[in-house]
Design a protein around this nucleic acid. Sequence first.
RNA 1: GGGUAGGUGGCGGAGUGGUCAAACGCAGCAGACUGUAAAUCUGCCGACUUAUGUCUACGGGGGUUCGAGUCCCUCCCUGCCCA
Length: 375
Amino acid sequence: MNFELQVVDGQARAGILKTRRGKIKTPFFLSVATRGAIKAGVDMDDLKKMGAPVMLANTYHLHLRPGSDVVAHFGGLHDFSGWDGPILTDSGGFQVFSLGRKKVTDSGVWFHSHIDGKKFFLDAEKSLEIQHNLGADIVMAFDECPPNVPKWHTIRRAVERTTDWAIRSLEAHKARFSLSVSPTERPQIFGIVQGGCFEDLRQRSLEEITSLSFDGFALGGLAVGESEQEMYSVLDQMCLQMPEKKPRYLMGVGTPTNLLEAVSRGIDMFDCVMPMRNARHGTVFTWDGVLKITNSSFREDKNVLDEKCSCEVCAEKKYSRGYLHHLLRVGEDLGKRLLTIHNLSFYHALMRETRVKIEQREFQTWKKSLMTRWS
RNA sequence: GGGUAGGUGGCGGAGUGGUCAAACGCAGCAGACUGUAAAUCUGCCGACUUAUGUCUACGGGGGUUCGAGUCCCUCCCUGCCCA
């Protein structure tokens, strides 16, 4: 088994995800390194230092440049990037949703490269081939993440394709890595549930996807424009039925509040660009809530970003808010880098603390107090 | 002293008779960002006002005109060239 459920507090779970590159305590947050690098000049040593457990990279982006064959030439993304912890690769399914120029058919997706407009095709088999070339420790099934259009038929079609592509993804994975080998000795593959905000479609997708022998299950197609309440409703519905002994991954989410709400419903893992992107844009996450560091009120602020934070920026280097305000204002790269380190560190610390509170069976109380502080 | 080019909102800089409180850029103020086409995007940005609206405005003064940032006269100032 690749997942050990250790403590349950309400619906919140603390466990261990075991991969061929080590064990990961859940719940946890994946550091998003789409193109094989965290943006803003944060490197793998920085990730190590902040206790980042897993790196996420993207099939679509690395396929365009430099090409998964090039990465394979270097022995895989681990050797290429210098990250020796577990790597999860996204299948490119999200790009089905986010890219402007594409055409989705039942067999796969025609994309126009956002770099040079060149046309290329991605399907389950190709996605898995690329992910294998990258040397991922956890690969994702190729799915269709539909936009948040409240059209039942559109979402149903995405659900049907996602199931079909999930089966093909699993076959492609098995062709390369026998599932009879322990998941701690081979790359794992996770399936993705779609269904938008439609209860019946979610139900159908959940049943179809969880009937397949994936190593873990992800919820996709959330936080794409629906309200938070709608997202939480889907989580409520899904978590009650997802296999208890498999990791549950909520893809692309979210705010610190989203994370805690999802954990309280039974989610184990997350990824999101929010801590990185918002850092670059001047939004800082702290234990006391959000800071918009570019606001003029921080010009002369001598405090560190967060007294309670143990990250390099706050606890070690003790940079003042005023200095970080200045760096961001004038556009110095250092500002983006430092805020990225802080935000990402905060997310990882939030997950570690979440786990501690679950172990102590105090998660709900703790969460409530944080919610009050952040509101 | 002579000639010449100009003086526009915090700055740069459009504009040449009405649709100008004045393009655009910068600066400023705020907001957004959720499996990264994002070092991006959006809004506000003369004053008083939530807004409608009102007032003061394109170097100063005077004039032409129904109407002037835009035309005329004059004064002041600045850059450049010649003495």
